[in-house]
Design a protein around this nucleic acid. Structure first.
Length: 145
DNA sequence: GTTCTCACA
DNA sequence: TGTGAGTA
């Protein structure tokens, strides 16, 4: 269960999905891709688009941390909700600020509430589509002999 | 294994 | 918004 190496080789990781306070584990792009189940091209693309900020090894390899992986998982959850990369960047930025300074500042709390409303709206639209799919399925099944 | 760029849909 | 190919 060795994790990323290459220069800053910390190798203390255990892929347990449970909380694990920021250890020094470092992952290369392929390993991140595998863990978040996206192609390495997509991970690199998101990185290039500024959704992630990988460190670099001496050999210019991208180095990702555990928090980068969690960030990727957030992105993967936003994707089916139809967020554009720019919208994701915005939401992630809000979360970054909230995590650093909490949502005590009224302006930040408002941003967070907007994000929540936005996600809820998208979720509701998906639910409508699901309902439509169920009706369609029922209509098809009703034709079965 | 990784990097980057270019082309393509 | 990604991906495939070619390269170093």
């Amino acid at each position: 269960m060795s994790t990323g190496q290459h220069e800053i080789g910390a190798d203390t990781a255990d892929p347990a999905p449970t909380a694990d306070p920021a250890d020094g584990a470092v992952y290369q792009v392929g390993e991140v891709a595998e863990r978040v189940r996206l192609s390495h091209r997509t991970v690199r693309y998101y990185d290039d688009q500024g959704l992630l900020s990988a460190a670099r090894s001496a050999g210019n390899y991208r180095l990702y941390s555990r928090s980068d992986i969690e960030r990727m998982l957030m992105i993967r959850r936003m994707k089916p909700l139809g967020f554009s990369l720019e919208e994701m960047r915005h939401v992630l930025g809000v979360l970054d600020r909230v995590d650093r300074e909490s949502a005590q500042a009224p302006e930040l709390e408002l941003e967070l509430r907007r994000a929540i409303d936005d996600v809820r709206e998208r979720r509701d639209k998906l639910a409508e589509q699901m309902a439509g799919a169920d009706e369609f399925l029922a209509a098809l099944r009703a034709r079965l002999p």
